[in-house]
């Protein structure tokens, strides 16, 4: 038996909206410690890694480890039927072929339930080592969203360079070139408005903007985003979802022409 209850059902709605364009399907791996998902896009260029902790839910029970194969567009269709203020409960019997989603309105006067058909998905898990990064940058998620959106209208790829001067995003295309530099800035009183650059060594890497732009669909989940960069390694774009957990996006770099 698996059962997980989340009072802020809107978080689940936002999460699936953030993933569904990038990955069509994946396994929700549930265990007594929580819910995890690792899924690559169809071209194996980027990966979504989601980890929600058991103690982040109002109620969590998982008697037996299970991999629940989810089609994200279908899950999205069901979650669109949940109100933004609804409490959502996920339920499945052991080895079930369906996941039940129950929505309760905040004043408890409307209760609905939907069954999502589960899929059997053979997924390849990638072993992602814990490592030190050359540069870790925390910035407002709205700022990241704006930069990648703006640059996507100019070019296809972005060179991200982190130095002690700041973090610079550069692109070029048919219309011309664009550079946006953010400096380390801890002046704003609210931590979520600060830009914090933790630099061990300067690093510069090139990435496809299309994917970075897609990751920004997670902006409604968190006020801050963390970018982690190391020479010749994938970038990590990470959103902390309050006390519930985190979603991380990994994107392989482009080799410079």
């Amino acid at each position: 038996m698996f059962e997980a209850r989340i009072t802020q059902g809107a978080v689940l709605k936002k999460l699936v909206e953030a993933l569904k364009e990038l990955v069509t399907e994946g396994n929700f791996d549930v265990s007594s410690t929580g819910l995890q998902l690792q899924a690559m896009d169809s071209s194996h260029v980027c990966l979504v890694s989601l980890a929600l902790r058991e103690d982040g839910f109002e109620h969590f029970r998982c008697d037996r480890n299970m991999a629940m194969g989810i089609h994200f567009q279908n899950l999205s269709k069901i979650l669109k039927c949940a109100g933004n203020e609804d409490t959502i409960t996920l339920k499945a019997e052991d080895n079930a072929d369906q996941l039940t989603l129950m929505f309760e309105s905040s004043n408890q006067d409307r209760i609905s339930d939907f069954d999502l058909k589960l899929m059997s998905i053979e997924s390849e898990h990638l072993g992602i080592p814990d490592q030190e990064y050359s540069a870790e940058i925390k910035m407002p998620s709205s700022e990241y969203q704006r930069i990648v959106r703006d640059l996507t209208s100019i070019g296809d790829t972005v060179l991200i360079s982190a130095t002690k001067e700041g973090i610079k995003f550069s692109t070029s295309g048919d219309v011309g070139t664009a550079n946006v530099t953010l400096r380390h800035n801890t002046t704003p009183e609210k931590p979520e408005e600060q830009t914090i650059i933790d630099l061990k060594e300067p690093v510069a890497l090139t990435f496809a903007l299309r994917y970075l732009n897609n990751f920004a669909k997670a902006t409604p989940l968190a006020p801050v985003v963390k970018l982690s960069l190391t020479k010749d390694l994938p970038i990590v774009v990470e959103y902390q979802i309050g006390e519930l957990g985190a979603v991380k996006f990994y994107l392989a770099p482009k080799i410079d022409d």
Binding site: S43, L47, A252, D256, D257
Partner: peptide, 14 residues
């Protein structure tokens, strides 16, 4: 995209 690497060349399948 030309020059785009795949994640599987960085992280092994477990």
């Amino acid at each position: 995209l030309p020059g785009q690497q795949k994640l599987t060349s960085f992280f092994g399948v477990t």
